[in-house]
Design a protein around this nucleic acid. Structure first.
Lengths: 346, 346
DNA sequence: TTGTATGCGTTATCAG
DNA sequence: CTGATAACGCATACAA
């Protein structure tokens, strides 16, 4: 028996050369037509033949092979926590709309802040991408900046949101400034006893621009900072904790909440207890999610400029991809305090 | 000038052969060590040398090259709409927890139901994946089943959720049965005038298992179906529409809401208007998101078994990947009606 | 304008 | 147990 025992690998899908054969043309020309480059010239009828053959065979270029030779994949990675948050949803929407017409595929990778960073990155970097936008990956940003010199020294990277590292491109949001404004606003309405509502499960309980801004403002006014701790922002938790305060008649005059979801829950809970939000207690949130506007008592919030964030981040990433050696673009945006009923004048 | 104008391609990252050189060993052996196969034997000291060299160089295998030869990427694609939804968030969480320890990277791709399908798939399929789990991609499922024979005939594919196509593996949820149960429950409490709340922006307004179950149940009881249409589930929209009904004193005895978010909003809105949810009006939602349990008036809901869904879907996908020629596994789960205060007996 | 030939970084086969 | 070496599917420099 003269079998040469052919080693048959491959996916079974039609390849470029299958198309070439069908179109009776060389593989190179198929590439020229299908790679979508405009600087090469192909005879219209040749092009037509190729297109037709490709369509007939259901040909799709193999990303891996393409990446191997060209170094490009047409994929960009969006790194973020996929743990639920209405704000993140809004940013995701924004990003989607932005990239609707652009010829890239977005691959969203869940970045778990709790998990071992190096491991997380190694996993995330398995997706062959042309660049990365990392959204609000707090601790990760620094870790990545540190690790990236080893793991991915030359991957275009833009961080977006409240955390950034000076080495790479970023679109930041100055939450500290937003906090300062919010506190100033509250003080200006005559409120002094202001508490800060945050979850114990996060490192944001007593650090980060929001806490620091709060702490600083309170001390500047000669007030004692007071943290209301909840385990998570589940409605139930907030209800328990605030319920106790109501009962003990030890509600503050205002509550600065870590985010809008907490603010909305707090507002709803307090109203349930008969507390008048906006007069008895002021409530302020962060992020600017839609619900704050339509809530029974509209919520004052420090609104993040997410549309501009996304636009800029994509801009910066494109620059990095096109010109990898260019100096990183960096910009910090300022959030906007939207004053509503929940912090009405007393 | 004697420059040979070398064509320099490549990523600049260290390659397998760089590691080989550093470890003074052949490239083949580096592969053997780093590919993580257990069926090959390498001398412990050789292995150590390789590992050390790889670490020192910050070597990471090139996904594209690896995919090209082995046909595997270690990436699985999660296809779903990333338009915000609390339920989707919960499923995402569930999936994340499930795959925490597994050695795969999950790439989430946003599937826009509104967009041109073939185009969406072509984009999504650019990410080199070993298999796909498509979650609640209603129309897409059929479209994919249709297109997939052309675009990706052999890609392991499992659909998960309320929509499935008989050709491929799936883990379905029988929302029709859930609807039947919910309607039976409402009728059993003596309510007859039941309305169906759905968004005009969706094809679910007057089709799909929920609508059909509702429609059927109403007609079976000799009642006239009545759809309450809202443009979207934004709080504001629901407030307007229900406000009108309250004013016109034409509220139904119960409202079956397309999902829990709508149910929560409706409940909150109605209470704002002084309507007693649970006695004046019953409210039932779908999905079983956490908030339904902790809302001021806990909401009756048709709870989707998302943890089991995820577990099975991952199971089925693994089977397809391991044994591509095996017959697709298919299973339909039944949701569970959780009865709470919002549909209390009159 | 098109074809030929080379190499991208791996894995896997086969011979040492 | 280890080292050559042939694919994998494609883009591109270069020749025609």
């Amino acid at each position: 028996m003269y079998s040469t025992r052919v080693h048959h690998r491959g996916t079974g899908r039609p390849t470029r050369d299958d198309v070439a054969r069908a179109a009776q043309i060389s593989g190179a020309t198929v590439s020229r037509v299908l790679s979508g480059r405009t600087d090469v010239t192909v005879l219209p009828e040749t092009r037509a033949k190729v297109l037709e053959a490709a369509r007939a065979l259901g040909y799709m270029p193999n990303t891996a092979a393409r990446a191997l030779t060209s170094g490009r994949t047409g994929i960009i990675g969006l790194w973020m926590s996929l743990a639920y948050s209405r704000y993140r949803g809004q940013v995701l929407d924004s990003m989607r709309t932005l990239l609707q017409g652009v010829e890239v595929t977005t691959s969203v990778t869940d970045i778990d802040e709790e998990y071992h960073f190096a491991h997380t990155f190694e996993r995330a970097l398995r997706v062959p991408i042309d660049g990365i936008i990392a959204f609000d990956t707090s601790a990760s940003v620094d870790a990545f900046a540190r690790e990236s010199d080893i793991l991915a020294p030359s991957v275009p990277f833009v961080s977006m949101g409240a955390y950034w590292s000076s080495k790479k491109s970023y679109v930041g949001v100055d939450l500290r400034k937003g906090t300062d404004e919010a506190m100033a606003h509250l003080f200006s309405t005559g409120r002094k006893k202001i508490a800060y509502l945050a979850p114990t499960s996060s490192d944001l309980l007593d650090s980060g621009p929001r806490f620091e801004g709060y702490d600083y403002a309170m001390k500047s006014e000669g007030q004692t900072p007071r943290i209301i701790r909840v385990e998570t922002f589940a409605y139930k938790q907030i209800k328990e904790v605030l319920g106790d305060l109501v009962q003990a008649k030890s509600l503050p005059e205002a509550i600065l909440c870590l985010n809008d979801e907490a603010a909305l829950a707090a507002s709803q809970v307090l109203q349930g207890f008969g507390v008048k939000v906006g007069s008895d207690v002021a409530i302020v949130g962060f992020d600017g999610i839609e619900e704050t506007e339509y809530a029974p008592v509209p919520i004052t919030t420090v609104c993040q400029p997410y549309e501009e964030m996304c636009k800029l981040a994509w801009d910066f990433l494109q620059s990095q991809i096109t010109e990898p050696s260019a100096v990183p673009k960096q910009q910090v945006l300022v959030p906007r305090l939207i004053i509503r009923e929940s912090s009405g004048t007393v």
